[in-house]
């Protein structure tokens, strides 16, 4: 198991000012799998996700203790934030293309790493769009505005944009909350393909989505990680009564 661990989270405790968002959470995240984080609103699952790429730090009143190791290296001590985020990409809840062309949205990450050679950028753009199953739909209008795409296409564009940075891990923060069922299916499909090359952490409000795509599931409730196990076991025989109640829909 040890060599297969991507993230190793120990006693992660997070506060935003007076709000105690996460209570001493510990878990391992396996490489090349999908960990689904489920739980009701304000359960701390998004805070957990944003701790993995240190995006919580943008908040002024953020304080954390505990440790998160990425392949043995402490992400808060051994990485610069931008170095970490190049290895740990993120897809947000709403599709958020920048108001630039499709091409420039995807070239954003590579350009910030100093890649300005047109041939290399062209190749990166095409490869990323293909991996996100968007190339065929947009290859003739790479220069047109990304904001003109449909919601589902925008979200796949955001996936492509993240892939262009060449991360090892991709964090999905409720990526389908604004999408119709067909677009949702396409995003889920791409996640299942992507896990062959990437480690994926998926935060979702949709318990069924977690059941469909994840290999393991973590259930968060009011800042506690209640349990984390193989997907089948969480959904068929959870250890904790609260997990069962949430899954069958008694609350949340």
């Amino acid at each position: 198991m040890e060599h297969n661990v991507c993230f190793s989270v120990r006693d992660l405790d997070i506060r935003f000012g007076a709000v105690h968002a996460l209570h001493r959470v510990s878990c391992d995240i396996a490489r090349n799998g999908i960990l689904g984080a489920i739980g009701p609103a304000n359960s701390g699952k998004t805070t957990f996700l944003r701790a993995l790429n240190r995006l919580n730090e943008t908040q002024d009143n953020y304080r954390m203790s505990g440790s998160i190791l990425l392949e043995g290296r402490d992400i808060n001590k051994d990485f610069k934030p931008e170095g970490l985020r190049r290895r740990v990409g993120m897809i947000f809840a709403l599709p958020m293309p920048l108001p630039l062309s499709i091409y420039e949205n995807i070239a954003f990450g590579p350009r910030r790493q100093g890649i300005n050679d047109k041939r290399r950028l062209d190749a990166a753009v095409e490869e990323s769009l293909r991996s996100a199953f968007l190339w065929e739909e947009v290859k003739d209008r790479l220069k047109s505005a990304a904001t003109k795409l449909s919601g589902g296409q925008q979200q796949r564009l955001c996936i492509a944009r993240t892939l262009a940075v060449k991360p090892d891990v991709i964090l999905f923060d409720e990526p389908c909350s604004g999408l119709d069922p067909i677009s949702t299916a396409k995003v889920e499909e791409s996640m299942v393909v992507l896990k062959k090359k990437y480690t994926i952490v998926l935060v979702t409000n949709n318990t069924k989505q977690a059941a469909r795509v994840s290999d393991r599931v973590a259930f968060f409730l009011m800042g506690d990680l209640i349990e984390e196990d193989v997907t089948d076991r969480i959904f068929t025989s959870p250890k904790d009564k609260r997990t069962e109640d949430y899954i069958v829909g008694k609350f949340g």
Partner: peptide, 25 residues
């Protein structure tokens, strides 16, 4: 704010994010 988060999440440094994901707009 999401422009800033997007910039940071794509591995841009803080200044790069300001320069390329905020200032132009």
């Amino acid at each position: 704010d999401y422009f800033r988060e997007v910039g940071l999440s794509l591995g841009a440094s803080r200044w790069q994010t300001v320069r390329h994901a905020v200032l132009p707009f």
